[in-house]
């Protein structure tokens, strides 16, 4: 779902992805194909900075994701309707505890994890990812596994990603498939309206 370079849109079509969101696009661009969404990622460590960053950001076909860097921002962003997903990286994974899971569940806010983050994680970091993702699955928080690719080599076939998730998190195929297709599609349909 999440691409960091517009050149990867053709590769996405070749790999079988139907809809993608690309970071660094102007959402008002008229020539944007119907299956391409614009994505804005806001990294923030204070609520005031985040408020000013989010002001006027939300538009049609624009997916807004936030990378919170402390607990206050993580809690606050969970109930902001302008934010479509909360991104977990190796830098901020400690913020995603039981309390955060219950807040995200209550406001139906999806947790987004870039696949490049999972692949590039060290052993300890990967263990943390697995632990927190399992916690989120048990709390029924919608999870999105986005690609987060900035190059062709980082961009994997959905079947490869699906198999990796099945083995890593020990979930069944249907649950893993929802992380790759159903949950991201829900977010995109919500933003398209």
């Amino acid at each position: 779902m999440w691409l960091k370079d517009y050149k990867l849109v053709d590769e996405a079509r070749r790999l079988g992805y139907k809809v993608v969101s690309v970071e660094g696009l102007d959402s008002g661009k008229a020539s944007l194909p119907p299956n391409v969404f614009s994505k804005v990622v806001v990294v923030s460590d204070s609520i005031s900075n985040l408020k000013s960053a989010l002001a006027g950001l939300k538009g049609p076909k624009t997916v807004v994701s936030v990378v919170p860097l402390n607990v206050e921002v993580a809690r606050w962003v969970a109930h902001d309707r302008r934010v479509d997903s909360i991104v977990m990286t190796s830098r901020n994974q400690v913020l995603f505890d039981k309390k955060q899971a219950s807040v995200m569940k209550y406001y139906d806010k999806p947790l987004e994890v870039p696949f490049t983050e999972i692949r590039g994680a060290t052993e300890n970091s990967l263990a943390g990812f697995v632990k927190r993702l399992k916690l989120m699955i048990s709390r029924k928080v919608p999870i999105i596994i986005s690609s987060g690719a900035s190059g062709i080599l980082e961009y994997h076939h959905p079947l490869v990603v699906l198999s990796f998730i099945v083995k890593l998190l020990d979930v069944d195929y249907e649950a893993a498939k929802a992380m790759l297709s159903t949950n991201p599609y829900k977010v995109l349909t919500r933003t398209a309206i």
Binding site: R119, Y155, H156, V160, L162, S163, F164, K167
Partner: peptide, 21 residues
């Protein structure tokens, strides 16, 4: 070992190539 084989293909990018099933 179908799932394991497909999952392992994700590591190909670290070796400088990509396998598309």
């Amino acid at each position: 070992f179908k799932v394991e084989f497909l999952a392992s293909l994700a590591a190909s990018s670290e070796l400088g190539f990509k396998v598309i099933p």
